[in-house]
């Protein structure tokens, strides 16, 4: 057997073993990310929600944040009439983080506020990245009196491509491939106005 043929065969075997192995076992230690209770409130005109992702970072994840690569935390917020299966309101938001190596500071962009927050330390940046605070959903005029509503919030991460790496890394592995989801307590428009 020629050496090139042998090495080709060996490479094929190794690739197959890794592919099959990765189907059953991930090299990344994931965590179970969860949301804090969803707080639903109003200013008399608009409906707002606030919540926070918890247990969503690991040491390896911190290294990824520190790589300088822009990382996105996606959120989806849905408002349900409890008697209907289709949401009456659905919107996606994201928080993005980037790191400046020269200044050694973090910057977080929150899409629901369309604002950048700079000069952040890593702990502060992580808190902002994982939070949805005072997210305005819709005008109270769209809510019917007497109807019971709930708000569902879920989150997910992208795949990122690192320089020099053939395959992108699915960041969801750091959350054990599970989308954290939460749901608010049922509420009515009247309850919000009280």
């Amino acid at each position: 057997m020629e050496p090139s043929l042998l090495s080709g065969l060996f490479k094929q075997v190794v690739t197959t073993v890794i592919t099959v192995g990765s189907m059953f076992y991930s090299t990344i230690d994931g965590v179970n990310a969860t949301f804090s209770d969803v707080e639903v409130h109003t200013d008399g005109k608009q409906l707002f929600i606030s919540t926070q992702l918890e247990s969503c970072f690991t040491d390896d994840f911190d290294r990824i944040l520190n790589s300088g690569k822009r990382i996105y935390f996606h959120y989806k917020v849905e408002l349900y009439d409890q008697n209907k299966s289709i949401p009456i309101f659905s919107e996606e938001y994201f928080n993005a983080i980037s790191f400046s190596h020269l200044d050694n500071i973090y910057e977080v962009y929150q899409s629901h506020e369309e604002s950048f927050t700079s000069d952040l330390t890593l702990p502060r940046a992580k808190t902002l990245l994982a939070s949805l605070q005072n997210v305005s959903l819709l005008s109270l005029d769209y809510l019917n009196s007497g109807t019971i509503y709930t708000v569902k919030v879920s989150s997910w991460l992208d795949k990122i491509k690192l320089e020099g790496m053939e395959e992108p890394i699915n960041l969801m592995f750091y959350w054990s491939s599970l989308r954290p989801e939460t749901q608010s307590n049922p509420f009515t428009r009247d309850q919000l106005n009280q």
Binding site: V13, V17, I18, Y25, T27, R63, I64, N66
Partner: peptide
């Protein structure tokens, strides 16, 4: 440009770390 180079350098660190973790596990499989 410098930020970009530093980012690449950090990413290469990260890749080596990920590669080492994968190597540890997959070498056991292999």
């Amino acid at each position: 440009d410098v930020e970009s180079v530093l980012s690449i350098e950090k990413q290469s660190h990260l890749i080596r770390r990920i590669f080492r973790d994968e190597l540890t596990v997959y070498s056991a499989f292999i």
